[in-house]
Computed example of a mutant assay.
Amino acid sequence: MELTLLDYNMVHYRPSEIAAASLALSQLLLVALPWSPQQQHYSTYDATHLKPIMQHIAKNIVMVNEGKTKFKAVKNKYSSSKLMKISLIPHLNSAIVKTMAAALLSNP
């Protein structure tokens, strides 16, 4: 989510939308669970609404992982053992992330 703070294309999204999209993306990556009806009910956001936000987040992840951005502080911060090296988990380089990001990376 911290990467979204650096992305001008994300400023028009509400923090609750970014949080919901981050949760949806993380549960898809880590446990292969889709956005549930209960999550939709309580967040008021459906999967269709969250998909473009998830794509932006995925694009930011790919850009940082491939070194295509000068904003590397967030990745460096979360690669420390103090923060459980979360930015180094293999899930962040998965085909799911790359596929989600592909639409936005092909149209800069």
Results as ranks from 00 to 15, higher is better:
residue 87 S to P: 05
residue 99 T to F: 04
residue 46 D to E: 10
residue 60 N to E: 12
residue 2 E to I: 07
residue 96 I to T: 11
residue 83 L to A: 04
residue 88 L to Q: 12
residue 95 A to E: 12
residue 9 N to I: 03
residue 101 A to W: 00
residue 102 A to I: 08
residue 33 L to H: 08
residue 33 L to V: 07
residue 44 T to Q: 11
residue 63 M to S: 07
residue 7 D to R: 07
residue 73 A to K: 12
residue 61 I to Y: 10
residue 1 M to Y: 00
residue 57 I to R: 04
residue 34 P to C: 00
residue 16 S to K: 05
residue 108 P to H: 05
residue 99 T to Y: 06
residue 48 T to S: 04
residue 15 P to M: 11
residue 100 M to H: 06
residue 29 L to Q: 09
residue 108 P to G: 02
residue 107 N to P: 01
residue 15 P to C: 08
residue 24 A to E: 07
residue 70 K to P: 01
residue 14 R to D: 00
residue 10 M to H: 01
residue 103 A to T: 09
residue 11 V to C: 11
residue 52 P to M: 01
residue 36 S to D: 03
residue 26 S to D: 13
residue 80 S to C: 05
residue 88 L to D: 10
residue 9 N to V: 03
residue 5 L to G: 13
residue 73 A to F: 15
residue 1 M to C: 00
residue 64 V to Q: 07
residue 47 A to D: 12
residue 31 V to L: 13
residue 86 I to S: 13
residue 108 P to T: 04
residue 93 N to K: 01
residue 42 Y to C: 00
residue 105 L to Q: 06
residue 42 Y to R: 06
residue 103 A to I: 10
residue 16 S to Y: 05
residue 55 Q to V: 07
residue 66 E to L: 12
residue 17 E to D: 02
residue 83 L to M: 12
residue 85 K to R: 15
residue 89 I to P: 03
residue 62 V to M: 07
residue 57 I to G: 10
residue 40 Q to F: 11
residue 44 T to I: 11
residue 91 H to Y: 14
residue 13 Y to K: 01
residue 18 I to V: 14
residue 107 N to R: 13
residue 2 E to A: 14
residue 54 M to T: 06
residue 17 E to L: 07
residue 94 S to Y: 07
residue 47 A to L: 14
residue 63 M to A: 09
residue 86 I to T: 10
residue 43 S to G: 03
residue 88 L to V: 02
residue 33 L to R: 15
residue 83 L to P: 05
residue 10 M to A: 15
residue 81 S to D: 06
residue 11 V to A: 09
residue 30 L to V: 14
residue 13 Y to F: 15
residue 59 K to L: 13
residue 92 L to N: 11
residue 87 S to A: 15
residue 49 H to P: 05
residue 100 M to L: 14
residue 78 Y to N: 11
residue 4 T to L: 05
residue 26 S to K: 14
residue 68 K to S: 12
residue 70 K to H: 15
residue 54 M to D: 02
residue 92 L to R: 08
residue 14 R to F: 12
residue 31 V to H: 14
residue 77 K to E: 00
residue 82 K to R: 13
residue 84 M to P: 01
residue 21 A to I: 04
residue 75 K to H: 13
residue 66 E to S: 12
residue 93 N to S: 14
residue 51 K to M: 10
residue 18 I to L: 13
residue 86 I to Q: 14
residue 49 H to N: 09
residue 102 A to F: 10
residue 91 H to G: 08
residue 103 A to L: 12
residue 30 L to N: 13
residue 26 S to A: 15
residue 44 T to M: 06
residue 74 V to H: 09
residue 57 I to T: 10
residue 62 V to N: 02
residue 46 D to A: 02
residue 49 H to E: 03
residue 30 L to D: 11
residue 15 P to I: 11
residue 25 L to E: 13
residue 78 Y to V: 08
residue 94 S to V: 04
residue 88 L to H: 04
residue 28 L to S: 05
residue 3 L to N: 13
residue 68 K to H: 15
residue 64 V to F: 11
residue 7 D to C: 02
residue 18 I to T: 04
residue 73 A to D: 00
residue 40 Q to S: 15
residue 9 N to Q: 14
residue 9 N to M: 09
residue 43 S to I: 03
residue 30 L to S: 13
residue 11 V to T: 12
residue 83 L to N: 14
residue 11 V to M: 12
residue 105 L to F: 09
residue 64 V to N: 04
residue 45 Y to G: 01
residue 66 E to D: 15
residue 62 V to R: 06
residue 80 S to I: 00
